[in-house]
Design a protein around this nucleic acid. Structure first.
Lengths: 211, 211
DNA sequence: GTCTATAGTAGGATAGAC
DNA sequence: GTCTATCCTACTATAGAC
């Protein structure tokens, strides 16, 4: 037998690993990869550094695991769901709202990505090229089709995406600054709703897209 | 005499300090405070670690110096220049263009701030409260006045600022991602011009502000 | 002002008892 | 699976020669 009591063991392992990944996400979110220590992750997860290393043999492996854990859902929310029955306004509004929800639900994941990108995307570069870029180019084409059809104003589609990404992710990455200026200890559901409503109106007005 | 050859000495010191600050800005931009080492800064500046410590006795002091060096120009560009003769459209267009210029001219400074804010602004918090917040609130009032006067559409002024900040700073902080998706090794002047033009049109259309 | 040497500590990782 | 002990490297910082 390779393992003692494999069933119980692996169930427990999954639970501990999940706890560690949540802790690591939080620590990496604050300081990025090189700024974070295994000690800090262990503390956050409530176990010893040695035990942490038992589950995740190296810091690099832990970091990769955190990224892997988030990357697919992340890229999925960065690309359109092309519903042929929906109007441009409907597609864009749904897109903005789901991006804000992502910032609300995964603020730490967002910050980990922010660190990774600011750092030059040393780990994610290839993955972004292989998975995000093709989708991005498809979405650009869809927007260009809308422009040709006169459904929205002629604008630079690439920069439209950069603006939507930046202004939705800022509610996760720069929440400290936003809290400070709004005089709130924490952003609540109402703040995210206001952000969504503002951005949807703002972008649809800018595009001249009618619902 | 306190110093030997004070004139030459202090002139040289200023030059070396400037070189170190540029190097430190670059290193801190990539990894943030805790992720950066004095060794890396020394390497980047082209001098020994010991000599670096002679000029900047501690890493904290160096980091504070880098921030102090940028913070005033930074906050200045985050607030309106209230020209009573200018129209809302003119004020906002000038504002967006100068924010994009800031991202172009000080990408490392922008990234250092990004790290600091993502981290919870441990160093800058008080400064932002004392210096940015009052200006922010004044600018909000001005926008509300424009809305009352029917010069722009009624929108959430706070979130307008968050959107403009995010979508201008993204060209510094997330330049890696933008380069990747545009298929460019580096953003050039044309890219920044396109970004400015896009954002000005976009925001003015969204606000319904006529030039 | 610049160098060598080194102290002191924190961090990543391993070995081995239980 | 969990713990103690420990190795080794990298890091911040100091002391002191020149």
């Amino acid at each position: 037998m390779n393992q003692v009591a494999p069933r119980k063991t692996s169930a427990n392992r999954a639970k501990v690993e999940a706890k560690i990944l949540r802790a690591a996400e939080k620590v990496f979110a604050q300081k990025g990869f090189s700024g974070s220590s295994m000690d800090a992750v262990a503390d956050q997860a409530g176990l010893s550094k040695q035990l942490l290393i038992y589950y995740f043999p190296s810091k690099e492996f832990l970091y990769h695991s955190v990224l892997r854990n988030m990357i697919d859902i992340w890229i999925e929310k960065m690309t359109f769901v092309d519903d042929p029955n929906a109007s441009p306004a409907e597609i864009i509004e749904a897109y903005i709202r789901q991006k804000i929800e992502l910032s609300r639900d995964y603020p730490n994941g967002s910050k980990v990505f922010a660190h990774e990108i600011i750092n030059g995307a040393p780990v994610l570069k290839d993955y972004l090229l292989d998975h995000l870029k093709p989708q991005f180019e498809k979405d650009i084409q869809l927007i260009n089709k809308w422009i040709e059809n006169g459904q929205i104003r002629p604008i630079d589609p690439e920069h439209l995406f950069f603006t939507i990404w930046a202004s939705t992710q800022t509610y996760a990455d720069f929440s400290t600054q936003i809290q400070l200026l709004l005089g709130k200890p924490k952003l609540d559901q109402k703040d995210f709703d206001r952000a969504s409503d503002f951005l949807c109106h703002f972008v649809l007005n800018a595009l001249g897209a009618q619902k």
